[in-house]
Each structure stands twice: as C-alpha cells, then as structure tokens.
Nucleic acid binder design. Structure first.
Length: 919
RNA sequence: GGAUCUUUAGCUCAGUUGGCUAGAGCGCAGCAUUCACAUUGCUGAGGUCAGAGGUUCGAGCCCUCUAAGAUCCACCA
C-alpha cells in the first residue's frame, strides 16, 4: 500500500478495524482488584494503578440495525474513548446489546402473525425460546455496524441485557427491594394496550391531542358530560362540586342510570369542575384514572365493563362482546332514541396512545408489581443536589430533579413473554394460611415450586426493560460488593436527552440503591438528529437517513466528522449530507498533506544520504541553501510497500512525539509550532468540556488553513524533515479520536512511524521561538494584502504580471523566496529611486506593486473605498477613547491596544491619501 | 396547567468568566489550473445577533417584558 492520489476509505477501514481488534488494544489494561481485608496496602495499590477511563454504550437493540442516533452516540463516545486512550488512560468502552423487551416483542409478534399464529398458542417459556432464536439469528448485524463506525470497544466484554450476570444482579436488587418493602403488589388502574395486551409505565405512554366529542347525557334531570358514553355501564355515581349551587340540593339523592335498571348516588367531590361541561361528572372507577381516585375517596365499587381484549363485558346482553367503538355507537343511538342525548360538542382533548402501535390505551384494573419510588427518588435527589453528577447541558440537572420530585410509583410488570421473568411465586395451596401469598425465588425456570410443603406458581409477567436497564453501569463494569473497581462509577454516561427520565433517572436511583455511589460522574446528553430541514426523521415522512449508507459512500471518518459538526449538547439539530462531504474532504486533505510530507521526507533523506553518509536524529536536515527548486521536491520518492500487513504492529506502543528531535530554522516553522500548540491546548479544553463540534472545527482549521495552506506551502522551499515528521504526527494523533481510520491508514503508510496510532501517545507541546512565530503573522498580512490587491486589479492573471517592490524592508528582503512562493509574483526587488506603481495598504511596510499608471488609475475607486472604510474604523476607535469612563474603567491593556490601533489606522489613512493624490 | 429550550449570513450552526472589526461549513460571485489534493487554490459579497426596555466604560452574551417556534411532564370528565 502506498499513498494513492486520493483517500479511499473502503480500501482500508475493515482491515484496520480487524487489526485493532485482533491486537487487543481496545481492552482495558487495568483489572479490578479483590478486596483483601488483611492487606493494609489495598488503597496504595489503587493509587498506583494507571488512571482509568470507563464508558458504557447505551445498548442498541440486539436484533435491529443502527440508526442515525446510534451513529451520533458512537461518534461521541468513541471520540471520548480514543482521546482518553491516547492520553494514556486505561480505557474501557463496554459494548452492549439490548433484548429491548417490548420493542422486540412487537416485531416478533408481527412475525408470528405473518405465519398465521398467535401468542396464545404457546406458553411463556415456549415463546421466550422462540424469540431468543429469532434474536440470535438477527444478532451480529448491529455489532458489525458498530465496528464499521469505528467504535473502539472491548468486544470480549459485550453485555447482553439477558446475560446471566445481568439477570442475577437484577434479581439480587429485586430481592433487596422486596425485603426493604419497596416493592408491592397492587390492583391499580394501569395504562393497557388492548392490541399488545400489556400494561405500561406512565413514562411509556404517549399523549396526543385529538379531536373528540363531548356528549351531554341525561341521568334523569342531571345532565352529565362525557367523552366516553360506552363506559356508562361501569358508572357507580355522579359527582358534582360541593360548592356548585345548581346541584347542592341533589347531593345524597340518586339518579337512574340510562339503558340500565340501576340507581346511582349523587356525590360531592372537588373533582367536578363547575366550569366544565354541565358541572356534573359520571364516575367510572374501573376505567378512568380520576374516577378511580374519586372511587377511593368515596369507597365506591369498581365495575369492570371492558375486557383486556377491548370488548364489553358485564353489560346488558345487547352490548355484550361489542368492541368499545361499536358499543359507543350503539349507546349513542339508543340514548338518542330515548331522548336522553342532550348535546354534542366537538372538542380537542389529549388521549393516551401505545407508543409502539398507536392504539388508544385503555385504563385497566390490574394487579401489578409496583416500586414505591419515594425513598429511591429522595436518595437520588439528595445526591444530585450535592452536584455529584455534572450534566451537559447543565440545565438538565434541574429538570431531572424536578422529575424525581414528582415521580409516581413505578409499574414494573409487563404481560409479554420476552424479558426477564419476575422472580415471584404465588401461593396456591389453600391450607397453610400462615404462609405469605407471594414469595421471592430465583428459580424462574420452574413454573411451580414447593417450599415448606406449600405449593407456589410463578408469576407469568416479565420486568419492564427499564428496571433491568437501570443496572447498566453496574453490570457492564462487573461491579460487585467484593471488588475494588476502578471503573465504577463511570467517567461519563452518554445517551439521548429523550431518555433522561426513563433511563438516566432510573440508573441514578438504582446505582445509589445498589452501590451507594452515583453510577457516573458526568452525563452528556445528545439531542435528536433531525433531517436537513429540521424535521424529525420518520419512516412515514421518508426522510430517514441510514448512517451505514453514508459510511459506505463517504467513509466512517467522514460520517463521524460530519455528524459531530455543528452539534451541541441536548439540542435537536439538523443534519445534512453536506457536513459529511466536508468531513470526507478533510480526510482527503489530510491524506494529501501526508503524501506531500512523505515525499519531502523521502527526497530529503535521499539527498542527505547522497551528500553525507547518513543523517542523524536531532540534527536538522534542512538544506543549507534553504530554497531548492520545486522540481526536486516532487521527484519520485522511495515508498514503503506492503504496509497493509498489520501483523508487525505491536499493541500499546507508546511513541513519544519527538519534540526535541528538530530545530526550527525560519519563521514559518516557529509559527506552525505555535499554532499546533494552541490547537492542542484548545482541544484538551474542548474535550474536557464536551465541546466536540468546536474540537473538530479547531482541527479542521489547523490542518487545512494553517498546516496545509501556509506551513506546507512554505516547506516547498524550506524542508525541515524532522519538523515535518513531528508536526504531522501531532496533527494525526490529535485528529485520531474523531477520524480513527484515515489517521491510522496514514500512520501505517508513513515510512517512519511504528505501532498503531490508536495507542500512540498524545503529543507533547512543541518548542519554538515565539518572536519569530509572531513575525510570520506579519508575512501573512503582507501576502494576503498582495493577493487581494492583485485580485482587485482589472484584468486576469495579475499575480504573474506585476513585480513586488520594497523600500527599506528587511522582513520582505529576508523572506523574498517565501513571499514569492506564497503570492506567485514573478520577482521581488528593492525599489530603486522614486516610488512608483501601486502602494499596498499596509501601515508598517512600504511595498509597491509594479503596476502601470493606467492600471493604477483604474484602481482609484477601490482606494477611495478603502480610505472610507479605514476612516470609519478610526472614528469608532476615537469615539471609544473620547469616553473618559472607558479610559478609566476598562482594563489597561485594552486601552493601550486601542491607542496603538488609532496610531496605526491614522498612519494607514495618511498613506492611502497620499497614494490617491499621486494618482 | 408546570417546566425547559430555541430565535445570529441564503441554509445548518458555533460564539466558553460581557472586551476591540461577530465566526465556520455548505451555498453564491470572480479569478487560477502540468503544483500533494478539483474531494483543489486564491479573492470576495452577504449579519441594525427576533423586537422593546434596562444594567454596564462596553451587551450576541446579564436582567425584565413582548413575539414566534420546539420539546418534555402532568392532564382536561
């Protein structure tokens, strides 16, 4: 392999990943330590170990494909991981796979239906086995995709949410909670999906505003308003507000329930809002959350009239077995016929839907397992209030505390077979009444167990996935009560802002409950990736972007750079292919930069081999004359071949960037050292503060605008082999966290590098002469002014036409070759005799372009415009100095700067005016 | 009803404890072309930082209000 003309990611990526993986460099190098009570040196040992860095992947669905959000997650997490690995930490990025209980179940149930089966033909264990096999077949896809994205995770430690150790830990926690009295079984109204036949936690319910109707129905002389007339068969009362004058007299009396032969009482309850509808509300405790509470207050009967499959029951024969929708129609028709339907109004109200299938959820009375969250939430709030976890963005700390303060008990029972079985068994033997009704037991592989002669049957429900997921940092890091574990708490938890409540809040509660420590030190939340126009991606809109398509088209690095660009914590932000293209271009730029550096290095080596016996490290390889002809630079170079074989790469090679192996010999060299140092410093700060987009931006500018456009251009004249090597290495390593593949491909292709860049050492600061570096800025200013003036002159190809002349200017004189190279002017000469041509608008330099008078005249307008513009700037500066408060109160250095600038602008204006006069 | 966020160039977004002439990518215009790279280079146009007040020597940034939009939570019989 050698440097082709352009970088083709497809040729390198899979080989590189395979080589990384095979070498084991993604595994952490520091183990966890067993507690040894007898050894008093245990703490010492912990201090001596290498600093660790741990991060766990939010587990993607085991049987699914990665979507754009996963792409973002991996780009963020892997950049952090690789950065900290380069910084010398023992990094552990633990990959995961989610059984995704309900999600996967929905997919599998469709599969069953497709083959003409239903879940009711099988028992739970059979279904579990079937889904297991189904997932096993699909598994691997997403793991391959993670590799394609470059995730440098420890594959040996991949955790599946149904792994034995996960289930074991979940049972241990459940048992502890059961013993602590934090778990109870309750008959409550739960949100129930009649299609999927399972209950949900509050957090899984999707409320949507929908058009509906509000019907007024006469219960004798009392008119009640309802959106759900079909539930009237479950009515047990009519509630009115105790303060409502209209109904005060009727409280305690009864009314006749239409379409039935029942009398129901009129009760007083605050729940009835006199302002809403007619002010009288029918009360159906078994099918409405508010009514359930009213029923509790008044000790009312709960009559269930809707079954779990969404049909009517316990209703007059005529309505029995109808679906709720059919029943509603029939009830309305019958009420109308009897003249009891008194009004119909269109309203917009919010309705609970199944977040998966969109079915309207039915409030259903069910016995379920609940977690009493009060203590857990309080524990979490206490620790959060002490700022034990740092949030990005910071405002989420407040948001999550607010959520925890209002948290209601958590329903953890799900009526689906795909998940972790709830380890609870119900007593069936009618004798032995002293035994508890429910007992905890881990043997969920058994349907029936016997204890002390009493028979118990297994609860058929499974856990809410969030119950097990809340253990994620614990199970991924193998935290146990017995071990010192330097990886727990995690250094950071990175995940989507949309699951702050569902997951992050629960991990915090569970982490504290189980380990006594917060599960992570920082939280970084990413927002949604929207389409190019800021709309949510969805299949129905057809605007879904598949990350793998982009990876295939532009390369993994381009995708990573593209998706990080312009993105900040917690924000839902648009994403377009353009930013990936920009990333691809950067990779190609870096590739060509490296190609040029290698060419120069090769050419220099050949030359020094020719002239001297062999160049020695530490000695500058710069040519004595300092400015060779270009043709020599591009002469064919010796290249290493067969670099595609990674077998000779030693893992964990820590190559020290040889910052003392060079000496700088000109201003451009000092300048690039300074720029790279600034870039590294900024990067370190950006990574510490999770400013990924800025980090990428900084690298982009340093590599492209500074290294390639200025430094390398100057190195076409002055070759400093050791400095070229050293600076290129620094940039490659600095970019590696974001673009791992291209940097590794280049690293393997360069003739002088060893090992993997993935385990290289973060570059040290470069030595340089700061005064010389600053002088280069002067040259840059001159070059830009020459270029822009030439571009503004009439005609084309101006750069080649006009010579540059200087008067009394040692900087220009000494850097003649460099300025010529950068501006492309044909010659640079001292001005002999009187000034002529066009004077450049530079305050500190007397420079002229040798332009004929005619052309100068044509430039007059530009000159006038320039005078006006500088004049405006000068006015603004003067106004500032005229303000005595500014001079008194602003920091001295700012005032001084302003003074200097005024002097400079004044000088410039007077020169420009003189120039204009001459013309 | 409760809460959070957003509003900066044509588009998508940066802008850290307030500091000088507000930046980037893409797009646009002009010029260049044997050069490591057309996945290129050079040059340029384009912004009363949503609006109105206030604090300050100084506000895109801090405070108050207004407008528009987004999201989350709770919930409307």
């Amino acid at each position: 392999m050698s440097f082709a003309k352009s970088y083709e990611p497809g040729e390198y990526e899979s080989d590189i990943y395979a080589a990384w993986e095979a070498s084991g460099i993604f595994n952490p190098s520091v183990p966890t330590y067993p507690v040894d009570d007898n050894a008093d040196g245990a703490d010492d040992r912990l201090e001596k170990i290498r600093p660790t860095y741990s991060i766990v992947m939010p587990p993607p669905n085991a049987n699914g494909n990665l979507h754009i959000g996963h792409g973002l997650t991996v780009a963020l997490e892997d950049s952090l991981t690789r950065y900290h690995r380069l910084r010398g930490q023992s990094t552990w990025y633990v990959p995961g796979a989610d059984h995704a209980g309900f999600e996967t179940w929905v997919v599998y149930e469709k599969e069953l239906e497709k083959h003409g089966h239903t879940r009711f033909e099988f028992d739970r264990d059979e279904l579990y086995a079937k889904v297991w096999n189904f997932v096993a077949e699909q598994r691997g896809n997403m793991e391959l995709q993670l590799r394609a994205l470059g995730a440098s995770c420890a594959w040996d430690d991949l955790t599946f949410t149904l792994d034995e150790n996960v289930i074991d830990r979940v049972y241990t926690t459940f048992e502890k909670m059961w013993n602590d009295g934090l778990i109870y079984r309750g008959e409550k109204l739960v949100n129930y999906c009649p299609k999927h036949r399972t209950a949900f936690a509050d957090i899984e319910v999707e409320h949507k505003d929908e058009k509906g109707h509000l019907w007024d129905i006469a219960y004798d002389d009392i008119i009640v308003s309802t959106t759900r007339p079909e539930t009237l068969f479950g009515d047990v009362a009519v509630a009115v507000n105790p303060e409502d004058e209209r109904y005060k007299e009727r409280i305690g009396t009864t009314v006749h329930l239409p379409l039935t032969d029942r009398e129901i009482p009129i009760i007083a309850d605050e729940h009835a809002d006199p302002e809403y509808g007619t002010g009288a509300v029918k009360i159906t405790p078994a099918h409405d959350f508010d009514d359930f509470e009213v029923g509790e207050r008044h000790n009312l009967e709960r009559i269930q009239v809707i079954t779990e499959d969404g049909t009517m029951v316990n209703v007059p024969e005529k309505y029995n077995g109808l679906t709720t929708e059919e029943c509603r129609k029939q009830v309305l028709k019958d009420l109308k016929e009897q003249g009891l339907l008194k009004g119909e109004k269109k309203i917009i109200h919010s309705v609970a839907h199944c977040y998966k299938c969109g079915t309207v959820l039915e409030p259903m009375l069910k016995e379920q397992w609940f977690i009493d969250v009060q203590k857990l939430a309080k524990l979490a709030i206490d620790h959060l209030s002490k700022n034990e976890i740092k949030f990005h963005p910071a405002n989420k700390q407040k948001v999550i505390i607010n959520y925890l303060e209002n948290l209601k008990d958590w329903n953890i029972s799900r009526q689906i077979p795909w998940g972790i079985a709830i380890p609870m068994f119900r007593k069936v033997t009618s004798e032995a009444t002293d035994e508890p009704d429910w007992i905890f037991d881990r043997r969920t592989n058994l349907k029936e167990i016997e204890k002390a002669g009493v028979k118990y049957v297994r609860d058929e429900d499974t856990f809410d996935t969030w119950f097990s997921s809340s253990h994620w940092p614990i199970v991924c890091t193998d935290w146990t009560e017995e071990n010192y574990n330097p990886y727990y708490p995690l250094d950071v938890m990175e995940t989507g802002a949309d699951i702050l409540f569902a997951w992050v809040a629960r991990m915090i509660m569970m982490g504290l409950y189980v380990t006594g420590e917060v599960p992570f030190k920082e939280v970084y939340l990413h927002g949604l990736v929207l389409d190019a126009h800021g709309a949510k991606m969805s299949k129905s809109k057809g605007n879904v972007i598949n990350p793998m398509d982009l990876v295939a088209k532009y390369g993994s690095d381009a995708f990573r750079l593209g998706i990080l660009r312009g993105r900040s914590a917690g924000m839902n932000q648009a994403f377009s292919e353009n930013s990936v293209i920009a990333g691809r271009n950067l990779c190609n730029k870096l590739w060509n930069v490296s190609r040029l550096v290698q060419t120069i290095v090769d050419a220099s080596s050949e030359e020094s081999e020719d002239s001297i016996s062999k160049h020695s490290a530490g000695a500058s390889s710069q040519n004595d004359n300092g400015h060779r002809a270009e043709s020599e630079v591009t002469s064919s170079a010796r290249r290493r071949t067969d670099r595609c074989d990674f077998d000779d790469c030693e893992p964990r090679t820590l190559r020290n960037t040889a910052s003392d192996s060079y000496t700088t010999n000109n201003m451009g060299e000092d300048w690039i050292c300074r720029e790279i140092n600034d870039c590294l410093k900024k990067l370190e700060s950006d990574m510490k503060h999770y400013r990924f987009a800025e980090a990428v931006e900084t690298l982009y500018q340093t590599i492209w605008d500074k290294y390639a456009d200025w430094f390398l251009e100057s190195q076409k004249i002055f070759q400093n082999q050791e400095l070229l090597k050293c600076t290129l290495e620094a940039l490659l390593i600095a970019l590696h966290p974001f673009a791992p593949f291209v940097t590794e491909a280049i690293w393997q292709n360069l003739s002088w590098t060893d090992g993997f860049i993935a385990t290289a050492k973060w570059p040290a600061r470069l030595k340089y002469d700061p005064i010389s570096a600053e002088e280069f800025e002067n040259i840059r200013t001159i070059v830009v002014e020459v270029r822009s003036t030439l571009a503004a002159l009439p005609g084309t190809n101006n750069a080649k036409k006009y010579a540059l002349m200087y008067d009394n200017d040692s900087l220009v004189q000494e850097n003649e070759f460099l300025i010529k190279q950068l501006t492309k002017v044909p010659t640079i000469n001292p001005l002999n005799g009187a000034p002529r041509g066009l004077r450049l608008a530079l305050a500190d330099h007397e420079l002229y372009l040798d332009v004929p008078e005619q052309v100068v005249k044509a430039y007059r307008d530009d000159l006038t415009a320039k005078i006006l513009s500088v004049g405006r700037e000068l006015d603004a500066l003067n106004a500032r100095m005229m303000n005595p408060n500014y001079v008194d109160k602003a920091p001295a250095h700012l005032v001084k700067e302003t003074r200097d600038q005024i002097k400079e602008k004044e000088a410039l204006i007077s020169r420009l005016k003189t120039e204009l006069d001459i013309i």
